[in-house]
Write a protein that binds this DNA or RNA. Structure first.
Lengths: 233, 233
DNA sequence: GTCTATACTAGGATAGAC
DNA sequence: GTCTATCCTAGTATAGAC
């Protein structure tokens, strides 16, 4: 467990989620039977998915600051005011996209075969991030934007997913250090951050911009430099 | 020479430099004697240096988008309108800071002993960048901001310095690959970009934020992971 | 070349009808 | 919950006096 490497913030309950699963009174006789979402709710959820898709793309293309709500509304094909019925602010819009990304990451990590060697798992996770980035689906966190950060650390779902991911990766890192595959001089946090950083590595887009290499080659090169190092063995 | 790795843009002559060295008519009998700058010019240059210092700091703290001209003016202690007498736009303000950074880089590279092994030179250059970043003096290029990019590629001084740096580092990289120190499977461009990326590596600030390591330790760790790789030899 | 005061615009957010 | 129309702040840039 390396969850201690993340400052555990007292995550206050989330303000409100726009699309809730229908909550029945626990006194109801059918309380244990999840009710199928109504047609309207399905439409709503689909609309929000579409919004999040657009936000995700814009976030990866231009980053949070440069993305405008007008643009989001236009691309979704909806009025700006309607967006604000779904999400209370631009920050929450971005947060929703990030939350979905986190949930996808959690889901992907679960797919990795448990029997694989720790290093193999770590490489798989890294490749997954790089692939998203190369496909223009990895949101660009403009690092030190304060208003977005504030929203994010207040988002329990986001924080929980992030910590879950960090714990999983952290365990793999420690296992890989224990069995001698990853160098132990580097603290596990450093390794973790180094892997995370592949999700926003400018080298990926620079190499892509040269047009000389395809995505497979680029991922291979960055993986090599990251795991094997620049120096020859 | 790897200058071909950078798209050689036809760099049009710079619009105008706010502080020019006094230009005498070439017909003048003292044309070859550089005239000492007048007191007023020295004051002007000093003022502009102060402005650039502030811009540089803000650029590294919050990036281009989040930096406001009001803030710059306030921190310099001058009226906003006065700033615009020195620099025609916010973009030019940032460009000036970046140009100075480039010139410093060029100067630093020249200081590196020519007799050192290529890899040693590359490590020195990398450490220089990381040190600036850790000290909060490395401007944060918000990557894909279009208006700033446009100004930059129109700035001959900037482009020339960037190409000069790339050539120098490129030569060292190729030398290091030739003598077997740096792995040759990786194209020189990839190595070059990988080193450049240390100037904006989020791992540096993340590790700094933990408060568990001092700058020397952080630089050592990142250098290790970059050159030696995460895997144990 | 410095100031104060102001013009102008982009962009986040809301009002209020349907 | 969607729309049109509008508000309002922040932020770039400029006018014009000294």
């Amino acid at each position: 467990m390396v969850s201690k490497i993340l400052t555990k913030t007292a995550s206050k309950p989330l303000a409100k989620n726009s699309v809730k699963t229908p909550r029945q009174s626990s006194a109801s006789p059918r309380a244990l039977v999840p009710k199928k979402p109504s047609f309207k709710q399905q439409m709503l959820a689909a609309r929000e998915q579409a919004i999040i898709d657009v936000v995700n793309r814009l976030l990866s293309e231009k980053g949070f600051e440069a993305m405008t709500v007008d643009e989001v509304a236009f691309d979704v094909g909806v009025a700006k005011a309607s967006l604000y019925k779904h999400f209370p602010s631009k920050e929450d819009l971005a947060a929703a996209a990030l939350v979905r990304m986190m949930e996808r990451a959690v889901a992907y990590l679960k797919e990795i075969p448990a029997g694989d060697a720790p290093v193999i798992k770590l490489k798989a996770a890294t490749r997954w991030m790089m692939q998203l980035k190369l496909r223009g689906e990895m949101p660009n966190l403009p690092s030190q934007n304060s208003t977005l950060r504030a929203t994010l650390i207040g988002n329990t779902t986001y924080i929980d997913a992030l910590m879950q991911i960090s714990d999983t990766l952290g365990d793999w890192i420690e296992a890989a250090q224990a069995n001698g595959q990853i160098r132990s001089e580097l603290p596990a946090v450093t390794v973790l951050y180094t892997l995370y950083a592949r999700a926003c590595d400018p080298v990926l887009e620079f190499l892509q911009a040269t047009g000389s290499y395809d995505n497979q080659q680029i991922m291979q090169m960055v993986e090599t430099s990251c795991f094997e190092g620049l120096l020859r063995r």
